[in-house]
Write a protein that binds this DNA or RNA. Sequence first.
RNA 1: GGCGUGAUGGCCGAGUGGUUAGGCACGGGUCUGCAAAACCUGUUACAGCGGUUCAAUUCCGCUUCACGCCUCCA
Length: 472
Amino acid sequence: MSRQLEELSPLKDNHVRMYTCGPTVYNYAHIGNYRAYMFEDLLRRWIQYKGFEVTQVQNLTDVDDKTICGAREAGRPLRDYTQTYKDAFFADLKVLNIQPAEHYPAATDCIPEMIALIEKLFEKGLAYQSDDGSVYYAIDKFPDYGKLARLDREGMRSGARVDQDEYDKDNAADFALWKGTVEADGDVFWDSPWGKGRPGWHIECSAMSQKYLGQPFDLHTGGVDNIFPHHEDEIAQSEGANGCMYSKQWMHCAHLQVEGKKMSKSEGNFFTLREILDKGYTGREIRYELIGTHYRRSLNFTFDSLNANRAALARLDEFYAKLQDAVGKTSGVSTKNLTNQDSQIHGLTPEGLPTWAVKMEADFSAALDDDLNIAGALGALFDGVHEGNKLFPLNSKTAQAVSALWKKIDTVLGFLDPPKKEVPAELIEMADARATAKANKEWAEADRLREAIAAAGWVVQDTPTGPKLKKR
RNA sequence: GGCGUGAUGGCCGAGUGGUUAGGCACGGGUCUGCAAAACCUGUUACAGCGGUUCAAUUCCGCUUCACGCCUCCA
């Protein structure tokens, strides 16, 4: 609200209550949506890393113009239609390794709460019903209106592009709390003290946040485009009705662009998650791409950067694989004796962590503490990888300690642990045969086997502990 | 018009009043049978113009350019 960075300190105990605006389930969510959810995921993971408990609520908007229109065009009942996209949303979250929120209330499941909230606004004199049956919020009665978006109310009025005549409202900028039913809504309506109708968009978040988090709560997030009018209206509703602060702090995520342009269907640069998966990228590669830019900077999504990030991720994977080999859990072929050299290890902590790893964690942590500086945090991680790589092979105890730290860091990043890939038995045989050929200096045969392994989509690497197979 | 962001080396992207970000790509080298991976190494980049300062990419002002929001799009 102050537009300053503020330390996060929960209102109650050690418990951070956060509300995040969720998807409107009328279609598959696009990567721009997921950029915002990814930011929120990083945020909640970091808050947890710092030792706080988190309760996160993310709403599902399953009744509005778009869902009703979509259901009608598909010739399906609204609930049935939106269920498709709710399911897809949760499947996508899984692919991206986004931690589930504690609550995912659907708008249609909270109608009574919304009605109760609107009634309260009537009591306070902030709501009125117009002749068209709809209920509006009288922003003139709420002096703080515009405080989040820093809007000039006079300017708003004169600059409003709305044709006053189209509306039956006291002020063109008043927004709907309850929409009286119209023919196009079909059978989508609920009974209320103001007749049949459906809730406005903004009331949904005010009602649900209060239901699950109480008021005030700690943190409200969303995309920058939600600042006005959505979040401004939530404040007007919640603070107007309850007479106390709504959310203590706000964080807004910048937009995602595609190839330098705003994503839009007409530009043909509109991507859903599954479209990118179909191009052969994995969920964790996309996760890395979406998480890697500071949340207040617009993220330019390009396939060039996705490819660059794929290479960067491979570097991290390589490091982690070597770490695991050193621990003794060899994944691959030919578990030979592991070298136990610790002469090069200096300054171990009681946990067995070398100083470079301690520094890595400290720098990583300091960066994220500073307004979620993810680029700085990743820089610290790569610095650590660089230092660690110099010292391989690590002894088993050190490798174990670093590996444990790596996993701890991954509770925040969520992309450091690559899926295990079982090496096909025949490839292991080929790799071993190649090792034998090499020992006999039969280079042609060794190269032939390497080619054959490559044709199967694997890379063979010679290491001090024998050949290793990696996917692709 | 109002409110608000940003301009860093080939690309992406941190940060700082004077000291190496990091990643990707490219070149040279070490290692390797050859590779791969790793390591070493590669004329110090900060939009322009003023100002403050011993010193500015970093602070202030202006200019140019780009972008977002201004009624339901994360």
